[in-house]
Amino acid sequence: MTPSPEEQRARAAELRAALREAIRDRDRALAARVRRRLRAVETAAGEGSDRSDAGRRPPARDQVRRALVLLGAPAAPKLLSTVHRAFFDEPIVPSRIASLRRDEERSFAARGAARAPYVCAALTHDRFAPVRGLLALSDWPLERRILGPLGPRVDHLTHVRNLALRVRDIRAAGGTESPAAADLLRRFALTVPGSHRTDDGPDPAPDPDLLARAAEAEARLHAAVDDRHRHTAAARARAQLPLDRQLFGAAPLQVIRPVTDLS
């Protein structure tokens, strides 16, 4: 009989832990074996829910989507790759991410919303241009994908909070987070005020619960102004832009003639 989804998930978690151990011990042969089994389990688990076009999509798309869902706000390829490695065991190949947004735009143009959610762009609040290097998900509301002046900071705080909560949940379930995840949390804790229990220097092992609360506290400070930016800009974008531009951003400003001198 086929194992239940819960059993499959438990099995996958076991395999991931084994994979981490193998990587830590630099046992490449074992790591490769475990990775193959893990993939088989994951594919089997995926078939039930997502049979439609598994295998046809580039895996980078799914990886990016998975990392974005965890982060909860638009993110840069480097962070997506780091997060995927820290929480889902393998990094995303950067060259794959580079071409992803364009591929998605083409796919959307050809097939409409059939393959939603798409990996799409975050937009600037003033001109609705795609924000340099950020990826987002098309099923997020525009408010979540538009970045005003406070946007980069608020999104960073969202990332920190969500990653900290995930680590807390992993620990609550009796597991341990990967060394890469612990490292990420340590680095992020240095950038959020109030995330350390002590005043005498940074905490080598920050408490994820405290970190999440510190990130939420700072986000609350920015919320009023930031939400106003996002809502007004989103309303304007809905009024002005067709759906595909709302997802992938307005066309760039054109320079009519090359300019070498301002005067």
Partner: peptide, 14 residues
Amino acid sequence: AAVADLNEVGGSAS
């Protein structure tokens, strides 16, 4: 914490 990224203006790096 408000920032302005002036690497691009409306998607153009001119």
